[in-house]
Design a protein around this nucleic acid. Structure first.
Length: 588
RNA sequence: GGGGUCGUAGCUCAGUUUGGUUAGAGCGCCUGCCUGUCACGCAGGAGGUCGAGGGUUCGAGUCCCUUCGGCCCCGCCA
């Protein structure tokens, strides 16, 4: 049943070659320009914009009707494609050489004036955009972002399909597990007092699929973590989840590189050089102060510990004696920073956890040092030389335990590079970070916790250290880093019941609770688990980077605010008491 | 949990430092004029719970307390 004229073309389609044709367009009114005797309207759909023209000499009724249309009205218009008069073409629009002279106007729906303009460069607060997300998503830039994301899905599915992977859906309602992030819980109506959890990742399921013989699995899957949000972190996010059997690190990394290369080629047209660069966790920390180093610029960290170990400055001396590190970065051209600027930098360092900040202002032949009371001139000079400083540079020194001091220096490095505009915009630096530690000691929990997750296999060369020095054991884990952002992470897994039980014990999970929490997995492993490993990509983050977005909210159709609210539909919200009764839940 | 910052017209903001006439601007919106505009132009007009609640004061957008919300960061995120 035709209730209105259906479109014959999209709003991005018409060209000079269509001149003379009768066409029907449907879309939204971008702008209306009433010149008195003639009315121009830009009609918009997701394919583009076309200027349509209403004039009494074309059609009196359509012209009269056009006087009442307003922004965002929904139209179906039929008319003849006409060339624009010489000199009135619009080179900004692909359709800018033609008009559609409308002889039949159907207003499919009216619209209230939107709270912000439906165009790319709007200056409007994000909460307004989120409240009216349906309008925000009409903006071309948002439509392109979601289209790019769609392209990412297609490339991913095509890539894995070509490589004999099977896409399997795993449950959204699963068992809550104690390790890792906080779970989102879902109460069971049928089983009073019991809860499902939403998956932090399909980790256990995909490993069990390996036991089942699906030796190449992938899934584009929502994951849920009830932790605080960031610009690049949402409580629900999408992973490209991958697991493979009978493989080692090289197989998984090579597979992942293939996908990354396809995505870069398919979305940006960029050929990324393979294989990707690799760097050990230790090297990444030592040089960049981060386990996800941004290698697009220099300003690398220099270890000054040996230079200052014998100095009279007790803070440095004791740090080195205790096995810590005194590290430096050399910031080009900032030797003339004011006292106030240095105070601000010191405050910044302290906010990152530093005890203090020592700095050297390297002038022509003199060096001004904030700790010159404690350091001899030749020591100051030696630091400057070791840090690679030249006249005009500012050297920042941080001392402390290895991880902490380097992390702070890494933070300062990023901050200063951002301020000095040292980060190239058009570079795509992909690299693997490998040889992560398997475990780290948690002061808070007074036990070792898994750096990656408890299913990660220890490095075979380090097995002897598992009991004697657990924090020295390397993991068979790898992270993929793009321009200083972790975009994928994975590992070779433990596939023997014995090793898995041993790992649980190391993590302070006794046999009984291991059986309670992960018994199904330990049982599965008894029945012929193949060696296996995998990786998961953060799809939202990748799309954020590939579209040049500031936040993953710009590549997610309906994101949450930083307090995990959905402003459009006002979730989370209260529920009917009867719903709680059914669940035997009481609010306290 | 902590730190920073913001909240005034539909939108983006000024006004808050030092309390004082009727709270302003740009864009948008409405009306009229205008036949080649495309940020159309011109003329006129409407539009305010100053986030909310309480307090101080003769008087609060402005000062105090409480609270709600946005963004960024630390912790957290196996």
């Amino acid at each position: 049943m035709a209730t209105f004229p259906k479109r014959t073309h999209t709003c991005g389609e018409l060209r000079a070659a269509h001149v003379g044709k009768d066409v029907t367009l449907t879309g939204w009114v971008q702008t209306r320009r009433d010149l008195g005797g003639v009315i121009f309207v830009d009609l918009r759909d997701r394919f583009g914009k076309t200027q349509i023209l209403f004039a009494p000499q074309v059609d009196q009724a359509a012209y009269e009707g056009a006087k009442d249309i307003r922004s965002e009205y929904v139209l179906s218009v039929t008319g003849r494609v006409a060339p624009r008069p010489e000199g009135t073409e619009n080179p900004e629009l692909p359709t800018g050489t033609v008009d559609v002279e409308v002889h039949s106007l159907v207003v499919l729906n009216k619209a209230e004036t939107p709270p912000f303009a439906i165009e790319d460069d709007i200056d409007v607060n994000e909460d307004i955009r989120l409240r009216y997300r349906y309008l925000d998503l009409r903006r071309p830039v948002m439509q392109q972002n979601l289209a790019t994301r769609h392209r990412g899905y297609q490339i991913t599915r095509s890539y894995f399909d070509r490589n004999d992977f099977v896409e399997v859906e795993t449950p959204i309602l699963m068992k809550s597990t104690p390790e890792g992030a906080r779970d989102y819980l879902v109460p069971s109506r049928i089983h009073h007092g019991k809860f499902y959890a939403l998956p932090q990742s399909p980790q256990t399921y995909k490993q069990i699929l390996m036991v089942s013989g699906f030796d190449r699995y992938f899934q584009i899957v929502k994951c849920f973590r009830d932790e605080d949000l960031r610009a690049d972190r949402q409580p629900e996010f999408t992973q490209i989840d991958v697991e493979m059997s009978f493989v080692d690190e090289e197989d998984v990394m090579s597979t992942a590189e293939g996908l990354a290369a396809d995505i870069f080629k398919g979305i940006l047209g960029v050929d990324v050089p393979r294989p990707f660069e690799r760097m050990s966790y230790r090297e990444a920390m030592n040089r960049f102060g981060s386990d996800k180093p941004d290698t697009r610029f220099g300003m690398e960290i220099r270890d000054c510990s040996e230079v200052v170990a014998g100095s009279g400055f007790r803070v440095f001396q004791e740090t080195v004696a205790k096995g810590g590190i005194v590290g430096a970065i050399c910031v080009p051209g900032l030797a003339d920073s004011t006292r106030n600027q240095m105070d601000n930098l010191t405050a910044l360092a302290k906010s990152m956890g530093a005890g203090g900040l020592v700095y050297l202002k390297v002038h022509g032949d003199t060096i001004e040092c904030s700790a010159e009371k404690f350091l001899k001139p030749e020591e100051v000079k030696a630091i400057a030389v070791w840090a690679g400083a030249v006249a005009g540079d500012l050297v920042l020194l941080i001392s402390g335990p290895w991880n902490k001091a380097l992390t702070i220096l890494g933070g300062l490095r990023l901050e200063m590079a951002g301020r000095l505009n040292l980060i190239p915009r058009d570079a795509w630096n992909l690299l693997w970070v490998t040889d992560f530690p398997l475990l780290e000691y948690s002061e808070e929990e007074k036990r070792y916790v898994a750096v990656h997750h408890p299913f990660t296999a220890p490095h075979p060369d380090d097995l002897a250290l598992l009991d004697s020095a657990p924090d020295k054991v390397r993991a068979r884990a790898y992270d993929l880093v793009l321009n200083g952002n972790e975009i994928a992470g994975g590992s070779i897994r433990i596939h023997s019941t014995e090793m898995q039980s041993r790992m649980f014990r190391l993590l302070g999970i006794d046999d009984e609770s291991a059986k309670l929490k992960f018994g199904f997995m330990l049982d599965a492993f008894k029945y012929g688990a193949p060696p296996h490993g995998g990786i998961a990509f953060g799809l939202d983050r990748i799309m954020m980077l590939l579209t040049g977005s500031r936040s993953i909210r710009d590549v997610i159709a309906f994101p949450k605010t930083s307090s995990a609210m959905s402003l459009m539909d006002d979730a989370p919200s209260g529920v009917d008491p009867r719903q709680l009764d059914e669940l035997h839940i009481r609010i306290v």
